[in-house]
Nucleic acid binder design. Structure first.
Lengths: 156, 156
DNA sequence: CGCAATTAAGTTGTGCACAACTAAATGGTG
DNA sequence: CACCATTTAGTTGTGCACAACTTAATTGCG
């Protein structure tokens, strides 16, 4: 309550701006590192989940990545066109589409093993710093998410 | 050198992922808060710069925001269509287009004063935490940026 | 059973990010 | 002056994020 509004104004601008810039910078690094694999960064995230879980309906994939079908459907279509995944309607529930990596998709994992190390190097951070930053960001995301859902509770 | 590759793999995944999630969560909050003003978050950033500097060529605007003309040109066109800015070729250098807020654009600043406070509230962080996080992110961005430009220095 | 509500994917439309390119103006050099 | 490299915007094309909507299948309830 002691800080004048102008301070908040300035700082707030910078936190969101810094976050945005960092996110885009990360994207740039991934773009370079993933070029060889022919993957974009979001596609890489999808493959990471699939490598870990083997096969998932689009819904579950979206929960892991916080993405909806509007984003995933075309992305998965591109991955399928690239021969990395296959999509097939579930027999038990025909609303559901199960996504799973093809042989080629699984094989790509080998070539992707160097990606994390390269990116980690690019950050210039050590393990502890990364862990700490990640924890802060997750807390921040959780706080921001509740605002999204609860909203309207602003004392106007 | 003591950490097995799998740790890096897992952590790295999470830092980029956390950052991405936080960035999108922030975007969501701004989307809600800026709705009344009829601005998107990137448009808001442009207006912030213009409110501070009054008038700038597209080039300078891009340097402030780390954005190129491919992003700014259409964005500025939309801001102009909304009556918030005017673009005019510089007389001194006809390659340059100077952007400046219209009366309506300047007036919007009044209505935007509450935005930072609302967003700051949504973060659930205090000033010191915000400042600290911002500093970390800026350092991270700087490190990632050098990778982008220097690249190829990987010991293959 | 029959029908409304729900759920899963997909589609459409808008806007942003960025690479690659074009067009036009400027500046420097012979 | 003539010419070429550089600079500034803009355009085109691809891909992602998200809101709003559609379609089809499933579930639940009377």
């Amino acid at each position: 309550m002691t800080t004048p509004a102008t301070d908040w104004l300035r700082l707030d601008q910078q936190i969101c701006f810094s976050l945005n810039a960092a996110s885009r910078a990360f994207n740039g690094v991934y773009r370079v590192v993933l070029k060889d694999l022919g993957l974009t960064y979001p596609q890489y995230l999808v493959m990471l989940v699939l490598w870990e879980h083997g096969e998932l309906p689009v819904k579950k994939l979206g929960e892991h990545l916080r993405l909806d079908s509007g984003t995933l459907s075309p992305l998965l279509k591109r991955l399928e066109a690239a021969g990395l995944v296959r999509r097939e309607r579930s027999v038990r529930d025909e609303r559901s589409v199960r996504v799973r990596p093809t042989g080629e998709g699984v094989a790509l994992r080998e070539r992707a093993t160097e990606v994390p190390r390269r990116v980690a190097t690019a950050t210039g951070l050590d393990l502890a710093e990364v862990q700490d930053l990640r924890a802060r960001l997750d807390r921040l995301t959780a706080a921001l998410d509740t605002y999204g859902t609860e909203a309207a509770s602003t004392a106007s």
